[in-house]
Amino acid sequence: MHASATAKSPPRIVLSGQALQKSFGGVRAVSGMSLTLREGSITGLIGPNGAGKSTLFHLLSGVIRPDSGRVELFGDNITALPTHERAQRGMVRSFQLAREFGPLTVLENLLLAPQNQCGERLLPLFFGPAKVRAEQEGLYRRAVEVLALSRLTALRNEYAANLSGGQKKLLELGRALMTDCPVILLDEPGAGVNPALMGLLTEMIRRLNAEYGKTFLIIEHDMDFIARLCDPVIVMTEGRHLMEASFDEIRRDPAVIEAYLGRAAAHV
């Protein structure tokens, strides 16, 4: 195959949701939503409040199960898998409100994230202490790098509960990095983050994408953030896929403006 031909073919799909459906009582939070996430992209997911974005994240990550529809990760059907198996297959997520392990230190929050540590099994814990120690030393070195990347080095022995809102978001991102998952879903990483830390957070996501090859799907309401970071952007409204395009196309699209501001605004 020619180099030019491979360059033109789009990167493979790492994550897809197909015709996902979820109702709570009589309310349809997600109704027939489909999306694809391509390898190496930073894909934005926007939509008005109540569009079903967070519920969609729950369905993709397995925190709740869809009423119908299908989720595929690297081409495998993972719809029925529990959350931890999805993580072991390479997908991790954050939550809208930072959910750090408060009474654990920042360093511990990072060290516990890597998967299938031999020290997490009872037999090696008691009968292979040298192996456990060597593994933990390796993880410590990685955590030191991640601490530097997220500028949390000085706070590493602080309880995670004592971090500011923005620092908690950085910690969650660092924790996601420590899991080694290639696919990272972020639910409003910018919510409650002050402007200075926002710059750092944006920079960190960009570096994880460029240098570590991470693929991102990001829910965010801060349109500057979306404009700077995300391509493509998926618009969701009333539980459905509205459109997917670059941010520039999206912000000029009358259907998007209508979804956000109502019909009147679209015709001004």
């Binding site: 925190v63 991790v92 997520r93 392990f101 516990l112 998967q115 997490e120 009872l122 814990l125």
Partner: peptide, 29 residues
């Protein structure tokens, strides 16, 4: 003490604090 001070205990405490997040991070809660 071995459990508490080792990686096993760290994961137990993470589960104690937030089992959903522990699961999302790949822990078989």
């Amino acid at each position: 003490e071995r459990i508490r001070s080792g990686p096993y205990g760290r994961t137990l405490r993470a589960i104690r604090e937030d089992d959903v997040v522990a699961g999302v991070l790949g822990k078989n809660v």
